[in-house]
Amino acid sequence: MNDTKTHNVAFAWFGIFAVAVFAITWICAAALDPTWVFGKDIISKLGISNTDASLYFKYGCVLTGAFAIIFGIGNTLYAKNAGHASGGIFMIMAGLFLALVGIITMDIGNGDLHKFVAITMAIFILCAAISFAAGNWYEHHELYAGVPIIIICMIIGLGIGYNNATAEGWAVILALLWICIESIRMIATTEKD
C-alpha cells in the first residue's frame, strides 16, 4: 500500500502545515495580547486586539485558510469515493471562510458579518468531518472513521457543559487534531496508481 508516494501525499502535508500555522499563530497572538484569556475570551477577539496579535490573527487565518483549500483540493482530486470527494469540497469551503474570518474581523460593522462567516466556517468543517468519516468507513478504515465521530461527540458535550469561549477554544483544538489525523490517513493509505 505504501510502495509508491504519489502526489496526494504532498497535498496531505498541506493539512499538517495548516494545523501548524494556525497553532503557531494562535500561540503567538495569545502571547502578544496579555489581556486575552483562554476560556474567557473567544479567539476572534485576538483579531481586534490593540497589539500586534491582530496582525498574527488576520494573516494566520488567511494562510491557514489557503493551506486548508489546497488540502481540500487534494482530497477531492484523489478521492476514493463520494465521501472523500464531498469532504474535500467542504474543506475547500471551510478554508475559504476561514480566510474570510481573518479579513472580516469583529470590528467591521456590528460584528454580525464576522459571526456569520465564522459560524459558516464551523458548519463546513463539521460537514467535512462527517463526509470524511463516511468515506473512511466505506473504505474499511474504521478507526480513522471513528476519530471524527468521537471528536464531534466531545464538541457537543463542550457546547452543552461550558461557556462559548471555552467550548470554542477546545473545539478548535479538537478540529486541528482531526485535520492532523486526516492528513496522516491520507499519507498512510496511499495506494500505487
Binding site: I150, G157, L158, I160, G161
Partner: peptide, 9 residues
C-alpha cells in the same frame, strides 16, 4: 463517543 460526551458535559 458517548462516554466522551457525557464526561465533557
Amino acid at each position: 463517543g458517548l462516554i466522551a460526551m457525557f464526561t465533557v458535559c
